Simulated assay, not measured.
Amino acid sequence: MSSYEFRQVDVFTNEPMLGNPVAVVHGADGLSDEQMASFARWTNLSETTFLLRPGDPAADYRLRIFTPSGELPFAGHPTLGSAHAWLEAGGEPKGAYVVQECGVGLVSLQRGERLAFAAPDLLRGGPVEEDVLERIAAGLRIGRAEILAAQWADNGPGWVAVMLRDAEAVLALTPDPAALGDLAVGAVGTYPEGAECAIEVRAFVGGLGVDEDPVTGSLNAGIAQWLGGDVLPVAYVSSQGTVMKRRGRVHVATDDEGRIWVGGDTLTTIQGSLTL
């Protein structure tokens, strides 16, 4: 058995216990796949991550991301939380950006008022099939006509995003996890102009072992790629986790080169060591 440095980081909040926690294990090169998967099941968080030496010389570190039911090629709040943990532990980026190596390749993060990652290219985009929309409507316990628009927004977890009438309609959802099954569904609705946040987002991911994720960077990235600059402005704040008594705030901005940056506050809530 070996001891590993450990942090649990709250992401998309500047107040403890109001964001989405991620468990981060440092120096995890000696752990097997099964040890990683077993620890992720034990933490029972939406994601648990493992920091390893990079394989790509352009990267600062390699990250593996596990849910209670399996491994993901990319996820947003684990990316921000793991970068926070790596920097807090003394990590020094090689260049202007922190560069993470993960299942979708290299992901850049910028440091400013808060950490932000560059949204990776979608693995799947485009229109959603009608039979999938019927299934989503049934799983959300709403009529099919209440889904005003939809788009595949998959950058790793398999997201399909649906737009409802407004933020109130999103907050009122009482989904049936069994009916949604293994679909990763993101619901989005707008707030009135002038509100603190532009949209309310909810993420239903029963297939990953979590019925609802509190605050979700990857989904917000996919929504920005779908709606940013059209339905949504080039810079805005997204609210998520309200129904779960969280106060997640996701800061989204598109730079002059067209890159979408998804950011949030991060803070360490637990620090210590674990033995595996």
Rank of each mutant, 00 (worst) to 15 (best):
G209T: 13
P214A: 01
G217F: 08
A179I: 12
A187G: 09
E168F: 06
R247K: 11
S218P: 14
A198L: 01
K245F: 10
T174K: 15
V243E: 07
M244A: 13
E193G: 08
V234E: 15
V215L: 03
V205Y: 05
R246D: 10
A178F: 01
A198R: 13
I199P: 02
Y191W: 00
G229F: 12
G209Q: 04
V162A: 06
E200P: 01
A167G: 04
R247W: 03
P177Y: 03
N220E: 06
Y191D: 04
G189L: 10
D230W: 04
V201Y: 10
E212D: 10
S218M: 09
G229L: 00
A195E: 09
V201M: 14
V188C: 02
G186Q: 11
G209Y: 00
L227H: 07
D182E: 14
G222Y: 00
E193K: 15
A167D: 09
P192M: 04
R202C: 04
E196G: 02
E212G: 07
V231E: 13
D230S: 13
V170T: 05
W226P: 14
A224G: 13
A178R: 09
E168N: 05
A203N: 12
E193Q: 15
E193I: 11
A195K: 00
P214C: 00
A221T: 02
R246F: 05
L173H: 04
L183I: 00
G194Y: 11
A167T: 14
L164S: 12
E200C: 02
S239L: 07
L171C: 06
A178I: 02
T216C: 09
A169I: 14
R247N: 15
D230I: 03
P192A: 08
P177A: 00
S239T: 00
V170D: 11
D213I: 08
A221W: 01
V210A: 10
A221C: 07
V250Y: 03
I199Y: 01
M244R: 03
A184P: 01
T190E: 14
P177V: 00
M163R: 15
G248Q: 02
